[in-house]
Amino acid sequence: MAQSPWRPTERINYIVGVAPGGTVDLYARGIKAALEQLQLTNHQPVVIENKVGAGGALALQQLKTNAGNAHDLGTFHTGAIAGAVTGLIRADPRDFTPVAMMVEETSLVAVRADSALKNASELVAALKADPTALRIAVAPALGQNTHMAISQPLKAAGVAIDKLTIAPFRSSGESITALLGGHVDVVSATAPVIMPQVKAGKLRVLASAAAQPGTGALAGIKTWREQGVAADYVSYNGVMLAPGVNAEQIRFWEDALRRVSQDKTWQAMVEQSGNRPIFRGYVESHRYLMSEWQAATELATSLGLKGAR
């Protein structure tokens, strides 16, 4: 690990803007465990604090309150960028310091196993004929990453995405329940939520929004690109710091999180969840934040979301 003059000298607060149980919380706890097990925090404990509310804005506000304090960690997530662009989250991720991207998340489009839809081409054909014909479940709100993940390829395929019938649910778990119950026809969600139902024979995946063909549990699932639609949508999960931290503090956490990304236990946990462990440091994370802000703004405008900015 590269030497840095700055080291934590007090408890590290890991502020997570969702309730325990989902993948965002799962990965934060995995990072905490690896930081402590690998002794990367100068013998300081890492404490998870689930600050739930306002679509994640309360967690960001708490992080912002402690500007310049590198003893506070927060979650860097694509969903927060999309939510801020559309006005769902009343906070601006660009005010913060993204220090590392740790997980590449795959979004899938699925239907019930008994659905007449067999692949992405049939879904596109149905929605081109009538964009309102199918109820599509997303979570936790319009304009979040699961909404964007199906809208991006459908737009590229020529579907009038501003006319789609989108049903937002509070969680992807609720989206799946609604799909299984016949209340919606299609769901867009991340792989860890969908794949258990696929293995149980209850759901069928029509397409993956990943840029590359999947491996492991996702082997054999065709991407949109493999089915003739030139689009993908990849979400990222990682770690951000408060505004106003300095270069030494960024360097310390970048080095520590790089070590976490190389840990076999961490890698196995992410892969078991259906996603891919990666590492992108501060420079790449910042570039991604700015480019994704622009891309999300353009897509949200196409969707007719009023908060797009």
Rank of each mutant, 00 (worst) to 15 (best):
L203F: 14
S4V: 13
G53T: 08
Q294I: 11
I194H: 01
G143D: 01
P196E: 07
T223S: 05
V109Q: 01
I12S: 04
Q44P: 02
A28Q: 15
S188Y: 12
V46K: 01
G21M: 03
P98C: 15
A34V: 02
A300M: 04
V99Q: 03
A295W: 09
A231T: 01
M101H: 14
G68Q: 04
A28K: 05
S172D: 09
Q37K: 15
P192R: 02
N69I: 07
A268F: 01
E122T: 09
R204F: 05
W6V: 15
M102F: 06
P168M: 11
F252P: 10
D232W: 12
I81V: 14
I48K: 07
M148N: 09
H77A: 10
N145C: 11
L35P: 03
L305W: 07
S107L: 06
A268C: 06
T9I: 13
N50L: 10
S188H: 02
L127F: 10
E104L: 07
K264N: 15
F169C: 00
H147Q: 01
V186A: 02
A141Y: 03
D92N: 03
G216N: 05
V260F: 05
A157H: 11
I89E: 08
G21N: 04
G158F: 12
I136D: 01
S4M: 15
V234I: 15
P131M: 08
R7H: 08
A300T: 00
K264M: 12
L289I: 01
P168A: 14
N66R: 09
A125E: 12
A230D: 14
A33H: 09
S285Y: 05
D263G: 10
L203C: 02
L164Y: 10
P196Q: 01
G74K: 07
Q62N: 15
D72N: 13
A167C: 11
V47H: 12
L108G: 05
P140C: 12
R112I: 07
T75W: 07
A296L: 06
A125I: 07
A34P: 00
F96S: 05
E226G: 10
W266H: 15
N237D: 15
A210D: 01
K64V: 13
Q294S: 05
A137C: 00
K128R: 15
I250A: 03
I136M: 03
A82E: 04
E292R: 14
N42S: 10
Y233C: 02
